[in-house]
Deep mutational scan, measured.
Amino acid sequence: CHSECLGNCSQPDDPTKCVACRNFYLDGRCVETCPPPYYHFQDWRCVNFSFCQDLHHKCKNSRRQGCHQYVIHNNKCIPECPSGYTMNSSNLLCTPCLGPCPKVCHLLEGEKTIDSVTSAQELRGCTVINGSLIINIRGGNNLAAELEANLGLIEEISGYLKIRRSYALVSLSFFRKLRLIRGETLEIGNYSFYALDNQNLRQLWDWSKHNLTITQGKLFFHYNPKLCLSEIHKMEEVSGTKGRQERNDIALKTNGDQASCENELLKFSYIRTSFDKILLRWEPYWPPDFRDLLGFMLFYKEAPYQNVTEFDGQDACGSNSWTVVDIDPPLRSNDPKSQNHPGWLMRGLKPWTQYAIFVKTLVTFSDERRTYGAKSDIIYVQTDATNPSVPLDPISVSNSSSQIILKWKPPSDPNGNITHYLVFWERQAEDSELFELDYCLKGLKLPSRTWSPPFESEDSQKHNQSEYEDSAGECCSCPKTDSQILKELEESSFRKTFEDYLHNVVFVPRKT
């Protein structure tokens, strides 16, 4: 048989008469490798580009789960590009990614509803959504962080984005990388972005840091009482949809009607710091009717980097990364020049730590249904340095008659930039024990000054392991946590139920 035959053949030295091919099969003959313009397919066939392209389009058009959109890589027609490569849609070739590779997620039936953290986790790592997304989240724990972890990498949506009755959302900033909504599939009414009845939605994105392009379709905003109209108009300008909307697409009466839409800028007039305090004062603000001013709200939190936005980490279910302080308005003076500047002394802060701070007014709604208010920009203030805590785990070892090696770990709280350490030492008198000992005694162990690591005695271990207080009263049991108490109650309830079950099964009433 021919060298490319495997198993047997019907005619000697003829690659077209093989029972099976050793390498690849091409047009009725066995070959060692697939010549151009053919590609290896499933490690035994040679196919042309049209064959591989037909497989790709067949799966793409069917949208069946589990099928493969075949691509070409290293002269092979394979189910998908290997790690580190992405497909070129024009020629199906796998090309190296520039940075992290995109991950295209194809949605069944063309859309997916995100109504819980669990459903959001199914899209973790996706960068391109081939379909439409509907966000409908009523509640949950730590929602802002969970949504950002699972949806934060999405850069492109081919269909539309719909935010509907998501009472738990305060902001859409968890879509931190969303840059493009194509609108290839539109919501009824030709809408590519749809926001309806979101009672706590206050911000779409921080438009000073976020760009969003909507290729096709219109915007729809109705019944978002805490979303200011200025935020919607800003989205029109940034996304390129200005002029597409009709009169009733953006409701003037049901958007922002319960919001404090600040239209003035508060400026800080005085800032002073110490290692654990920050004193702030800002310019006074009074609405047209000074009785509408209820006070100020001061927001602050630790910020290692200057990239904080107002609604980071917030949701309507209680999660809030900001510390909020309510401040009463100052006494009002008739003389504008003698107006008191409101302020606040922030206490209990960490030394040498940068804080993000902003302040906003708290006002009631005027009778004319106009909203007044003022808010400052987010500023960054760093507390002063102070003395560091003591170095940890000092170790001293003498390696000769004239040297001592000293080692330690950095302090747990540096409280500033540590530039150097101060080492103090003092000579001590020799131990009298060394002169009084009889060095001729056998088995004498000389006193040693070398360091030995501390260890816990058996008594201390027994005390720590004991669940009861000892007789001397030195140790006591740790208080039980809520989960331990709940577990004990469940076990007790189970024992009672099981005992009742045994009584009912074992003891049967005697027939009379």
Rank of each mutant, 00 (worst) to 15 (best):
K103H: 06
K103D: 11
L107E: 14
G110K: 11
T113F: 14
T113S: 13
D115K: 13
D115L: 11
S116Q: 03
S119P: 06
A120G: 09
Q121V: 04
E122R: 05
L123T: 03
R124S: 11
G125K: 09
G125H: 13
T127F: 06
G131W: 00
G131H: 02
G131K: 01
G131Y: 01
S132K: 02
L133M: 08
I134D: 12
I135H: 15
N136H: 11
N136A: 06
N141Q: 10
N142C: 09
L143I: 04
E146A: 11
E148K: 03
E148S: 05
N150I: 12
L151R: 00
G152W: 04
L153Q: 13
I154S: 01
E155P: 00
E156F: 11
E156G: 07
E156Y: 05
I157V: 03
I157A: 00
S158L: 12
Y160M: 07
K162R: 08
I163Y: 00
I163K: 05
R165E: 02
R165S: 13
S166N: 12
S166F: 11
A168Y: 10
L169C: 15
V170T: 10
V170W: 09
S171G: 13
S171E: 03
S173E: 10
S173N: 12
F174N: 02
F174E: 01
F175D: 00
L178F: 05
L180Y: 09
L180S: 07
G183Y: 02
E184Q: 10
T185N: 11
T185L: 08
L186F: 04
E187G: 10
I188F: 05
I188R: 13
G189R: 02
G189S: 07
N190C: 03
F193R: 00
Y194T: 12
Y194A: 10
N198C: 01
Q199F: 11
R202V: 07
R202S: 08
Q203M: 09
L204A: 11
L204S: 05
W205F: 10
W207S: 04
W207N: 05
S208G: 15
K209N: 03
N211L: 08
T213H: 02
T213I: 11
I214H: 02
G217K: 12
G217Q: 03
G217C: 07
K218S: 05
L219R: 02
F220G: 13
N224K: 01
N224L: 03
K226L: 09
K226M: 10
L227P: 00
L227W: 00
C228H: 01
S230H: 02
I232M: 02
M235V: 05
M235E: 00
E236V: 06
E236L: 12
E237V: 02
S239F: 03
S239I: 15
S239H: 03
G240Q: 15
T241K: 11
T241D: 11
Q245D: 04
E246N: 15
R247C: 03
R247Q: 13
N248H: 01
N248R: 09
D249G: 08
I250N: 09
I250E: 15
I250S: 03
L252N: 03
L252V: 12
Q258G: 02
S260N: 02
C261P: 01
C261I: 02
E262C: 14
E264K: 04
L266T: 04
L266M: 10
K277Y: 15
L279V: 09
L280R: 00
L280S: 02
R281T: 08
W282S: 01
E283G: 03
E283H: 12
P284M: 13
W286N: 05
D289V: 06
R291E: 15
L293S: 04
L294A: 08
G295A: 03
F296T: 03
L298P: 01
F299V: 12
Y300W: 04
K301N: 15
E302G: 03
E302F: 11
A303T: 08
A303L: 03
A303Q: 15
F311R: 11
D312S: 09
D312H: 09
G313K: 14
Q314P: 02
D315T: 13
A316M: 10
G318P: 08
S319K: 06
S319A: 07
S321G: 10
W322Y: 14
V324G: 12
V324M: 11
D326G: 02
D326P: 02
P329A: 11
P329E: 07
R332Q: 03
S333Q: 12
D335G: 03
D335L: 12
Q339A: 14
H341D: 08
P342N: 12
P342L: 13
W344V: 08
M346H: 02
R347F: 06
G348L: 08
L349R: 03
K350F: 12
K350S: 08
T353S: 09
Q354L: 08
A356L: 01
V359I: 13
V359E: 00
V359W: 00
K360H: 02
T361E: 07
L362T: 02
V363T: 09
V363L: 13
S366H: 10
R369W: 09
T371Y: 07
Y372K: 12
I379D: 01
I379T: 05
Y380I: 02
V381A: 01
P388N: 01
P388S: 04
V390R: 12
P391Y: 01
S398P: 11
S398C: 14
N399D: 15
S400W: 06
S401F: 05
S401D: 03
S402V: 06
Q403F: 08
Q403T: 03
I405H: 05
K407G: 07
P411N: 01
P411F: 01
